[in-house]
């Protein structure tokens, strides 16, 4: 029964593979500590944003700058990518082959890239409308916070590609599985940061 215990965040390989389960506990706890310190970086950028929110220097205000529809679609895309990554984790845990795993990873990658493309288009529109980072303290703090999350998603997409290559070349050995578990934590963590971004940045700015 002990193999069924939850030993680390994210999906647990459990009784499907006992050896990697024990190693995974240590490896993933270390990565979890990194994610929590990353969360603190984001939290301080949120604090900076909250302080700077009124510092528009006569330039665009949050209500002028944000549009609700693109923010909503980006949220749905990222949320769905979190779900598809969950499906990839389940395929990795239970499937003997790697076809389904690769398919779900590919879907996740495409959703991540769609999110990035939409976000870049948003930034381009903002900058075109005169809401560029150097315009005011408020916009500087916006462009410190939100693109940092985008940068994380870009790194996550790159990581998905690396993992697909590793799965293709090495197959599903213990090392590759632990790496995929880490990537899963990272990807789900980014979605949690995005919840804070769409609530604190976009929705707060759009409340009338």
């Amino acid at each position: 029964m002990s193999a069924d215990e939850v030993k680390h965040p994210g999906i647990n390989l459990g009784d499907t593979r006992d050896l990697s389960h024990r190693d995974a506990e240590h490896d993933l706890f270390g990565f979890w500590i990194f994610l929590m310190s990353d969360a603190i970086i984001f939290a301080l950028l949120f604090a900076t944003y909250g302080v700077m929110l009124v510092g528009t220097a006569g330039g665009p205000t949050p209500a002028d700058t944000y549009k609700i529809l693109p923010a909503f679609i980006e949220t749905l895309v990222l949320l769905t990518s979190s779900f598809t990554f969950g499906m990839a984790s389940i395929a990795m845990k239970h499937d003997a082959g790697k076809v389904r795993l690769m398919r779900w990873l590919a879907v996740t990658l495409v959703l991540g890239l769609i999110f990035l493309a939409m976000e870049l288009k948003d930034f381009a529109t903002m900058i075109g409308d005169g809401a560029y980072p150097a315009r005011s303290g408020y916009l500087s703090s916006f462009f410190a916070l939100v693109p940092l999350h985008g940068l994380h998603v870009a790194a996550g997409c790159l990581w998905v590609v690396v993992m697909m290559v590793q799965v293709a070349f090495f197959g599903l050995d213990e090392r590759v599985k632990v790496n995929l578990l880490r990537l899963g934590l990272f990807w789900h963590f980014l979605d949690i940061v995005w919840i804070a971004i769409f609530s604190v940045v976009y929705l707060q700015g759009l409340i009338r």
Binding site: E5, V6, K7, H8, P9, G10, I11, N12, S82, G86, L185, H188, F189, D191, I192, I195, A196, S199, V200, L203, Q204, I207
Partner: peptide, 25 residues
Amino acid sequence: VFALALIQMAVHFRFFLHIGLARSA
């Protein structure tokens, strides 16, 4: 909005990251 965000974070931790109240976690 903030209350819904907090609830949604808890949902993500529980169902996507499998953080529970079990002793081992």
